[in-house]
Design a protein around this nucleic acid. Structure first.
Lengths: 253, 253
DNA sequence: GAAAAACTATGTACACCATACGTAAGAGTG
DNA sequence: CACTCTTACGTATGGTGTACATAGTTTTTC
């Protein structure tokens, strides 16, 4: 067995190759009509339109007008297809700014990431089996780190802060996606909140009950445009950056 | 309208009833041997032992020695079972401390949450369809909010900060779980990092490459006990709390 | 040129999944 | 007792990812 790719080859090797190089087109056989790129784009189309749960290999194949198994000639598994989709949907990050206003830059970066999640909510539901290693995702990270270094952090600190920020945006986006996508124009949206409010026994959740009551009194959420960060997230990131500023400015470290 | 169960009732009503009350045992028929609690505990056992991907209704039923469909007499869907599992596995949060050291208290709270995720990594992979509304999870949140209020935040600010913190811990735990669970004693663990390092072209990722090089030089990760927060996360939360302290102490607000 | 090799697309087949439906038996109530 | 409700089970359906063998097409090699 000549094993042009060493049998299964390293999982990771194959993965990285597909993520970074696309598919090295075979020299010998007939020219492939199907390409990795076309498959990924079709899959993204399906996910955007009908959600991740309806995405299946056969659905993707149908979208392209090919048989199910043809897909596997270009993409070895559904898991990897999802990974490719996530990286492709992330796309190019916003252009990096050369500014001293690093806090503003980070906030804008977060706004763009937020917008991406609004555009492709299914990204949040892809089970991630390892740290993201796609080219686009790494580019996003690179841009973010740049601003954090301007802010005065050391390398490892910047990395920690970067992952922290990504988590915060992801988490907020997930909550947002769950709320907006949860009910399909069924009951009045207040229903859920009201039901839950009954369950929050002030004796059992003294703090939560108080906070909840205070919050629901002046509930005006604005028609979240989609591109701007919600106030909650802006607050969280803002405080985080404040803390970083203090840290970077302190002499002791 | 009392509508004890009103036919199918609202999805949400059923959900909440199961989460909070367990199962109101039917009066009429034979005494049920199977209980919701036993099912959830069995499912958790399976997930702890073999991971979430091997968890199926038939696997759970087999674990208990019952037929597959009997499970559905107590739990209406797999989705809801997962939700019940998540809440049960979260368990009781650590006892709330009455201390003025709110920053320390939050860090300890985060440490406990971290430990929970280490103990039941599959929680991180449960697709969450809406904001968590289980009793245990709300108790966790309640405890956290208490400390944030001590720190001087207003109600809505505390809620935002609380969700932010949960996201940060979740995100870090996810990365950690991915790394430790990723390779099953196959290649040397450095392999992945090395392969990736080759791909990180300094021209394309100037910042990332620099940070990566600096980090890998003094890579000593310590045998992460499991209960203590990793340094990355401690740093992130620490800066966040610093920022909150500044905010709460500032007169303008 | 001819032959061989390599690669693509397809069809069939399998194991597994969640779960809808129908049936039988048991426990409680009148 | 008869009646009703609930549980537990067996069967069945439509879906999934993907292994495997096959047939067709193009490029390389002799």
């Amino acid at each position: 067995m000549s094993t042009t790719h060493s049998g299964k080859g390293s999982d990771l090797e194959r993965r990285l190759a597909l993520l970074w190089i696309g598919h090295t087109p075979g020299q010998r056989g007939p020219n492939a009509q199907l390409t990795v790129d076309a498959i990924v784009r079709a899959a993204i189309r399906v996910a955007d339109a009908n959600g991740l749960e309806t995405l299946s290999m056969q659905r993707v194949a149908a979208e392209l007008g090919y048989s199910t198994m043809s897909i596997y000639n270009h993409v070895p598994s559904k898991d990897l297809l999802l990974e490719l989709m996530a990286d492709a949907a992330a796309g190019e990050p916003p252009p990096s700014e050369d500014t001293q206003d690093w806090k503003g830059a980070v906030l804008r970066w977060a706004g763009h990431l937020w917008a991406t999640f609004q555009l492709h909510p299914w990204i949040l539901r892809i089970p991630l089996d390892h740290a993201p290693i796609g080219p686009n995702q790494l580019t996003w990270l690179d841009r973010l780190l740049r601003h954090l270094l301007v802010g005065g952090l050391a390398g490892s600190e910047a990395m920690a802060a970067g992952l922290h920020l990504i988590s915060a945006v992801r988490g907020a986006a997930q909550v947002s996606a769950d709320l907006t996508g949860g009910h399909r124009t069924e009951e009045p949206p207040g229903q859920a909140a009201r039901l839950l409010a009954e369950l929050i026994d002030p004796r059992r959740f003294p703090v939560l009950a108080a906070v909840n009551a205070a919050a629901s009194s002046h509930e005006e959420n604005g028609t979240d445009g989609g591109h701007d960060l919600p106030a909650d997230l802006t607050f969280g990131i803002g405080r985080f950056l404040d803390g970083i500023e203090v840290w970077a400015g302190s002499p002791k470290r």
